[in-house]
Design a protein around this nucleic acid. Structure first.
Lengths: 225, 225
DNA sequence: GTCTATATTGGGATAGAC
DNA sequence: GTCTATCCCAATATAGAC
């Protein structure tokens, strides 16, 4: 069927549906971003092909270049745009801890939340991609680090500082303590998943690891009674 | 100058030096490996060019293909061959700890040794490369993990087990404890260097981080007196 | 704004002489 | 075993019609 004979689609009354051009452009932009993300995650930056992104997105290559200018800019827009959203549904550490019956439970819950997010296969793939392309795109490394700080470490530092002021903990260097807490809990399964993505994570073992990490933390930083 | 007129080089007595063919081939092989490693570390697998490796190594492209068959096999040979050597000059954990006046000093010394090796820029680059190519070469991820275990975690587990048997420590789960110790010491600066390679590591801060991590570990696992 | 068709470069791999 | 010269394909990016 020749493409030239296509007519505007009509609704149930026969009224032609003229798509809002702005919305059409937005939808195409979204389709490009989705296709590009899938391709970059699967292939890495260099092996990713603009032809493949073209095919997956359903728009033409020229349109992609009109929107994003170059492969580099497309990569930065897609990956850089996704980074701030990676931690989007992480509840603030302070709230999680305050809602718990005791500090240990609060820390375990927060670390479990963090693990649930960071160990998701898409986030793990994104992290591997960013690490692998850091020499080419140092901005992404800095962005990743800042997002981690703003969404997790920063709030946790605040929470530990307040708990220390309230006498519930004794944490002289909250920034270092947060790094230790994260490393000794989520950091351990994260390292395994980084090098062995095919390994199925075991929920029971994950909980045990996180609880043990929190206990390690509390053995040092619990307030002396 | 036409290449056809080249003569064998002679020594100081005019005796032609005929290079041992096996040695010549070995030297070329070594030159290829060195050039390929530099190129792969700088560009990643996909962006690395066999032409660039040809130029850097000083041999012809056909020779590289005779030796290694394909780009993939060259990559695996070069990176896979280097992995076991990364930990080559790490003293066994047991020896380092046994030679120290006390357990804390021994653990700090071992962690510092480990950090000295793992934070070297070439090792950090190699690690980033392996992580970024894990979807394409899962073997390298498994190899990295096994080398880490054989050269560091395994011996450390043994050492902690012996120290527990001797009553110097109380470590119920040595495998988990080793992961915690490594994560809370070397893991922290390693994470920073992973995402921010340009950051100059501060030796004083590194020592403080490692000592704090060991103290964290001992707060939980020191034998109860 | 969007498409089709194409320009142009560079890369992996090999044939054949020596 | 090694080199020179080349094949062939795929990739980024763009020109021009609509």
């Amino acid at each position: 069927m020749p493409a030239g004979t296509g007519q505007d689609p009509t609704d149930e009354y026969g009224i032609p549906i003229i798509p809002d051009p702005a919305d059409a452009a937005s939808r195409k932009r979204r389709a490009i971003i989705d296709a590009a993300l899938a391709e970059f995650l699967a292939e890495g930056y260099s092996a990713a092909s603009m032809d493949a992104i073209t095919a997956k997105s359903g728009v033409s290559k020229a349109t992609i270049y009109k929107h994003f200018g170059s492969k580099e800019r497309l990569f930065l827009a897609v990956v850089g745009g996704l980074l701030p959203r990676t931690y989007a549904d992480l509840a603030p550490a302070g709230a999680t801890i305050a809602a718990a019956p005791d500090v240990r439970t609060g820390l375990v819950r927060h670390a479990s939340e963090l693990a649930r997010i960071l160990l998701r296969p898409e986030i793990m793939s994104l992290r591997r991609l960013v690490i692998g392309e850091i020499d080419r795109f140092p901005q992404l490394g800095q962005l990743w680090y800042r997002v981690t700080y703003d969404m997790n470490n920063g709030p946790l530092i605040e929470a530990l500082t307040e708990l220390t002021a309230a006498g519930a903990l004794h944490v002289p260097d909250p920034e270092l303590a947060v790094q230790q807490l994260v490393a000794a809990t989520v950091g351990i399964p994260q390292l395994v998943q980084t090098f062995a993505p095919a390994t199925e994570p075991d929920a029971t073992a994950l909980t045990a690891t996180i609880e043990s990490g929190v206990d390690l933390f509390l053995a040092r930083y619990a307030a002396r009674s």
